[in-house]
Amino acid sequence: MTQQQAYRTPPWKKQIQSLIRVSIALICAFVVALIYLTYSAKLSEVRLNIQEAHAKRNDLMRQIAEYQTRTGALTSFDAMRRRAEQSGYVDIDFYDDATYVYIPLNGYDPHARFSGADLFYPSTPPASPLRPEYTISLQYFLRQRLIQSPYKRGQE
């Protein structure tokens, strides 16, 4: 003969216990889902911001490069020269006595020469080591020696 329990949990109590268990499980699941979704949303927002920042940074980098180059174009040599000329500036002229004042230095000799090396002086008149026949043109040689008559050469 099997032994039986004297009292049993009433059915309504069992149902309530079951409901509480299910509710706790649901609440836990809900809390987990809530936390998950909250952070997911935050992550999504942050990620979107990062992507926007990314695009913005690329755009800014391009703009900075563009502005640097525009500045470069505005200050390019030709542009600056043109603007300087339009503004009345002229090139430096060191020969312009009206603009520059030169102060002579006492004891300075502008004609002082270097003593370590010889000065250059033209030497004896240059002489060719070659006979004239080798230095004159064939045309001249023929005219002198063959075409012109001995009488005429004699006159010269």
Binding site: A117, D118, L119, F120, Y121, S123, T124, P126, A127, S128, P129, L130, T135
Partner: peptide, 17 residues
């Protein structure tokens, strides 16, 4: 270069010619 003899030359003259 000019096929000419310059006679006695100092070193400066060598460079000048």
């Amino acid at each position: 270069w000019n096929r000419i003899a310059s006679g006695p030359q100092s070193i400066t003259g060598c460079m000048a010619h």
